[in-house]
Design a protein around this nucleic acid. Structure first.
Length: 544
RNA sequence: GGUCUAUUGGUCAAGGGGUUAAGACGCCACCCUCUCAAGGUGGAAUCACGGGUUCAAAUCCCGUAUAGACUACCA
């Protein structure tokens, strides 16, 4: 029996040979330098922050080179596939404006000329290529059972030998086609292994766009390329797909670095041109002194929904991720406040080689700056959307008089150096509640307040039509009546005076809001209006 | 055990043989005709450790330590 006949025995029903596929998926017609890359998740549930980082990186590079960013679903592990996994991924990413030029659209549909984009639907393509490898003697059926493989590993561990199926452990590597065929006809279960041409004692150089040249021993493991269920393993599917889809850059997380020798070897023996690789470091977390990878299971901040629930705008998350991808982004953005993230040119060289500790504080700071630049309309809408989902009760108060709420939100906003007290939409309520009578049920702390002075001021001096300067000057002037002077003078001769203008303002602020720290007092008083100010003073008097 | 990678302030980091070792977040201090948030000014690092190479090392080389990844018929 020849190898061809063995290949026919294993794959009797191949519709097309590999030449057909090579012709079906021709070179893409793109301008020079265009990056074709992909996001290739397993549909195993929600998108986590690391996946968002990887997809955002790929998206940005493809976009800035007028390239292609496609979505390929790697569902060759049928046990892990989750219902609606694909739609969820697409929806989660769309929230961050990460969209695809081609690929899966949901569980059923897709667009693009290089599909199918769901690996489980590409079985016959993989089979065609595996068949070819068997014909050429570059792959072979292996009859080792999983138990036997485990035993081999245990033995290797015991003898401190290198682990894997290679050399003498590759028991079925050199079976003749006749011997293999006999076993197959005898219904012995098997998988297909790659017949590695490598030697552990030779070195191979691999280039990574962020790490530079890496040197590894050649791969000499006969890795499985097709599992018992007929589906390919990741390694093989990656090579066939990215060849046929003409991917130019593989951007993936750095857990794949050590598979590089396998992948390069696979590309080589298949006669394909290998793409460029870019491995990005994982996001880390300091867990009580232990630095570890952000974990989907242990860390709530790993889920993208965590930021949504906190009320951190997606755009802020993206700004933070952009600084992680290229740290010089931050500086650029500082100098180009009006530009968009997509105006920045990301570079592979600037991608950090070591993992970054995820810094929530910094994210919130970025969010704070972002929110401070929104117009009153924008922040009103954003906060409203947030409250609709997470705080129905306050939503009612918030939306009762939109113009009033917008005026509150506009205090010290829409100016060159806007106020920056809102870090996330969940902060809004705690920052403005006292502006609503419905919410204003204060418990005043003990404090020295001259109620008579305040009554006199509010009833006889305060005019809500005054502008800020007049308002302030009036308080200063009024203060003299009660022996309150200017701050400067008071500091020089504290014993001669009751207090200074600031003290009056503080008393006012305290009675009006029950707080000692608020935004601009003039604005607050102006918005509340004289009538409500007096009412609040009365309320305070009653409580005392 | 094997293979590979990384290591610059509390954090993210620039810098790839000669620098007063950028910048950002956080922290502290001071300033700013009401507080706060901002904003401004200033403060805090012998570049993990030990050896080399060199006139000169954060930068190059070798060890050590620490951390991470891989070592599945998972991706």
């Amino acid at each position: 029996m020849t190898r061809e006949e063995l290949a026919d025995l294993i794959f009797p029903d191949i519709k097309h040979d590999i030449k057909y596929y090579e012709e079906k998926y021709p070179e893409r017609n793109l301008k020079e330098g265009a990056i074709v890359t992909r996001y290739a998740p397993s549909p195993t549930g929600f998108v986590h922050i690391g996946a968002l980082l990887a997809s955002f990186t790929g998206y940005s590079f493809a976009k800035q080179t007028d390239g292609v960013f496609f979505l390929r679903i790697e569902d060759t592990d049928t046990k892990r596939t989750v219902e609606n996994g694909i739609s969820n991924i697409i929806k989660d990413l769309k929230d961050f404006d990460i969209t695809f030029t081609e690929g899966a659209l949901d569980e059923e549909n897709e667009n693009g000329n290089y599909g199918p984009y769901i690996q489980s639907q590409r079985k016959e393509i993989y089979h065609a290529f595996i068949k070819e490898l068997i014909k050429e003697g570059k792959a072979y059926p292996c009859f080792l059972s999983e138990e036997e493989v485990n035993e081999i590993r245990e033995r290797q561990e015991k003898h401190k030998d290198r682990i894997g199926i290679y050399g003498k452990y590759a028991k079925y590597r050199d079976l003749t086609p006749d011997e293999a065929a006999a076993k197959i006809k005898n219904n012995e279960p098997y998988i297909i292994r790659f017949k590695s041409p490598g030697s552990f004692y030779k070195k191979i150089k691999c280039t990574d766009l962020v790490r530079g040249t890496l040197e590894f021993p050649e791969n000499d493991l006969d890795i499985p390329i097709m599992k018992k269920d007929g589906l390919p393993t990741y390694h093989f599917a990656h090579v066939v797909d990215d060849h046929l889809m003409h991917t130019t850059h593989i951007i993936r997380s750095d857990e794949w670095v050590s598979s590089l020798p396998i992948h390069i070897q696979l590309f080589e023996t298949c006669g394909f041109k290998a793409p460029k690789y870019c491995h990005i470091s994982p996001l880390l977390k300091n867990d009580d002194g232990v630095i570890r990878k952000l974990s989907k299971r242990k860390d709530p901040e790993c889920a993208v929904s965590f930021y949504h629930e906190m009320g951190i705008p997606n755009e802020a998350v993206k700004l933070y991720l952009a600084t992680i991808i290229n740290s010089n982004f931050e500086e650029w953005y500082l100098q180009n406040k009006d530009k968009k993230i997509s105006d920045f040119e990301f570079s592979f060289k600037k991608v950090s080689k070591s993992g970054a500790l995820f810094d929530l504080e910094k994210l919130i700071n970025i969010s704070r700056t972002y929110i401070s630049r929104l117009t009153k309309e924008e922040i009103y809408e954003q906060t409203k959307t947030y409250l609709e989902e997470f705080d129905q009760e306050f939503l009612k108060v918030f939306t009762k008089d939109p113009d009033y709420t917008k005026a509150i939100l506009n205090i010290e906003r829409e100016q060159k150096k806007p106020r920056k007290d809102i870090g996330k939409y969940s902060d809004v309520k705690n920052l403005i509640w006292y502006m609503y009578d419905e919410e204003f049920n204060p418990e005043y702390e003990e404090k020295n307040i001259d109620v008579d002075l305040l009554t006199d001021y509010l009833e006889n001096y305060y005019d809500e039509n005054d502008d800020k300067n007049t308002w302030f000057n009036k308080i200063a002037e009024f203060g003299l009546k009660y022996n309150y002077t200017s701050v400067k003078e008071y500091k020089e001769n504290p014993d001669n005076y009751e207090g200074h203008v600031g003290d009056i303002c503080e008393m006012l602020r305290f009675v009006i809001t029950s707080l000692t720290m608020t935004p601009d007092l003039y604005e607050i008083m102006h918005l509340l209006g004289k009538e409500r100010l007096i009412k609040r003073l009365e309320q305070y008097k009653k409580q005392k």
